[in-house]
Amino acid sequence: MAKPKVALYWCASCGGCEEAVVDLAEDILKVVEAVDIIFWPVAMDFKKADVEGMADGEIAVSFINGAIRTEEQGEMVKLLRRKSGLVVAFGSCAHLGGIPGLANFWNRETIFERVYKGVPTMDNPEGVLPQTRTAVAGKELTIPEFWDTVHTLDQVIPVDYYLPGCAPPPDLIMNAITAILEGKLPEKGAVLAPDKSLCDTCPLADSKPEKLSLKEVKRPYEVILDPEKCFLAQGVICLGPATRSGCGERCINACMPCRGCFGPTKGARDQGARSLSFVASLLGIEEEEKMTDEEVEKLIDQIPDPAGLFYMYSLPSSLLRRRIMK
């Protein structure tokens, strides 16, 4: 029997998701024994034409990482969708928008102005900006259009499953591949990770006080954290209460608070809003009846960039999706 065909593709991403596949280590041998990788631009020499030459639905599953922010990425994922039985959004950027999604606080014009004119290291006296068409020596060169807004994968094509994380950990990747090969997949649309909050599985959970209170907010660089004690109890914002578990608590074990890369648990519509709500609820809880409005504002002002903090990985998937540009 022919082995199932698998494609791996990257869009607006850092390459960490590709690294995550390599991090399967010896397990990758089991994978290539069971499947045929027919398209993987970062590692193998197949071209778009090879995918175009396949029958619709011929690819069993496409793992697509990265957010979608250019015309080319949009075109490629539509092609892969047509040729694939299943599409898995692989990693935070495909799932929620991820770090590239923070660009939704700007648009193409402001990003180009900054990157190609504003930054001190840029030498561009004529102020040339990228154009989709440029005439060079009597020929026309084209590059894909850069969009104003970064999208999640499921805002561009229908997605069957989500593998969360920045990047997804090897055990979840192997579980997903095994489930696909054995046909033991959950209902469509599921996130292939436990539906528990990170706090539930956190190794520091026992040190979390019965009643949490944030008197003062400290940023990670301002304090030497006790690695054995709940970070929220130490005054450092950790998004564990509003973030899905399954990551292996990698950041917590490295003494860094959670920033939410696994996205929300099932049922939450907007991870940033949920995070903002719980942090505001804990902030100044001890003295809340005594505080004047001004004192409350001072407390709130300890969080200089709430939108950037609470939507660090999920801005394009949020209810507002982007900044309104005036």
Binding site: L276, S281, L283, E288, M291, V296, E297, L299, I300
Partner: peptide, 22 residues
């Protein structure tokens, strides 16, 4: 104490909304 929580929450939300251009 529910109203105190909403006061803080909405103040923080208002700050975030400004970043969204709202």
């Amino acid at each position: 104490k529910g109203n105190y929580k909403t006061r803080r929450r909405m103040l923080l939300l208002r700050k975030a909304l400004a970043q969204f251009g709202v």
